Computed example of a mutant assay.
Amino acid sequence: MKLHWSPRSPYVRKVMIVLHETGLLDQVELSRNVVALHMSTPDPVLADNPLGKIPTLVTENGARLFDSRVICEHLDLRAGTGLFPADREARMAHLTWQALADGMTDILLLWRTELSRETGPWEAVTAGWRTKVRASMARLEVEAGRMAELPFGIGHVALACALGQLDFRWSDCAWRGHFPRLAALFATLEARPSVAATAVRDDQDSGPDEVTRGQLDFSDAAFL
């Protein structure tokens, strides 16, 4: 198999965590690609995914799979690891957590790109994103207890990647001080070998991400 990959992508990280969990990592060739909204899509990525996004997985029989949710479920079904539970209630919980965490990650990625625009960000849009991220974190804080009770699954994978993106690109937001149950859960996830081995890293040495500093805080106690 071949995976269009980047060590900075939270969605690629989801797939990498699942590859570790399923024991399929040694069956995948990693193809390094740089993909961003403001850049031309590399031809090899576009050839395998008309949306021009990563991760994209090319299987042994030539099937092209995207996005991370499809790839992760394919790998889990192939290995039978149960990251997508068979039990209906547990499965719906994990899929909902995945949707929430992935949705928050979407916002964080778009928000950072908007902040980088030469003409400046559209404040009405970024204000809306700020509200949604704060609401998402508040909901995840409520869900943290239930998440800690269930076996590790795709909801935990998506959550680890979303919170990892906060630490990587929004490092001054100090979210742990406002969401203690979520912070405790994340600490246990970070200690898991598959999560520790896939920590996001900047292989282009771009330095601190100053563009996001001061843009996101969780200090409004009334909101929480």
Rank of each mutant, 00 (worst) to 15 (best):
D203W: 05
V15F: 12
L51Y: 00
P193W: 01
K2P: 06
P121A: 15
C72H: 01
W5H: 14
M16L: 10
M104Q: 12
G82M: 14
L109H: 02
A36T: 02
E60C: 05
T56V: 04
S40V: 05
L108Q: 01
A196M: 10
I154R: 01
A47K: 00
T56Y: 00
G128T: 05
T131F: 12
C173M: 06
H156I: 09
L100E: 09
V35G: 00
R169T: 07
E29K: 06
T113D: 12
P42T: 00
P193N: 02
V58A: 09
A196S: 12
M104N: 07
D26C: 09
G177L: 13
S40D: 13
R169F: 14
A160G: 08
L19Y: 08
R176T: 15
M16F: 05
S40M: 07
P50R: 01
L189P: 07
D217P: 05
W97N: 10
F179T: 02
L37P: 00
G103N: 04
D43N: 02
R201N: 10
A183Y: 05
S6H: 01
V125R: 06
L75H: 02
T113W: 06
D26H: 13
E29R: 08
L140W: 06
T119K: 12
L57Q: 03
F218D: 04
V195M: 14
I17S: 07
W97K: 02
F66I: 04
D220V: 07
G120S: 05
V142D: 15
T126C: 07
R130T: 05
S9M: 10
R130C: 12
A221M: 09
S194D: 12
A124L: 14
R64N: 11
D43G: 00
A196C: 11
H178C: 15
G80M: 07
S171M: 09
A183G: 10
F218I: 06
I54S: 02
L224I: 11
S136F: 13
G177R: 02
E141L: 04
E149L: 13
S6N: 01
L51G: 01
R69K: 10
P50K: 01
L75A: 05
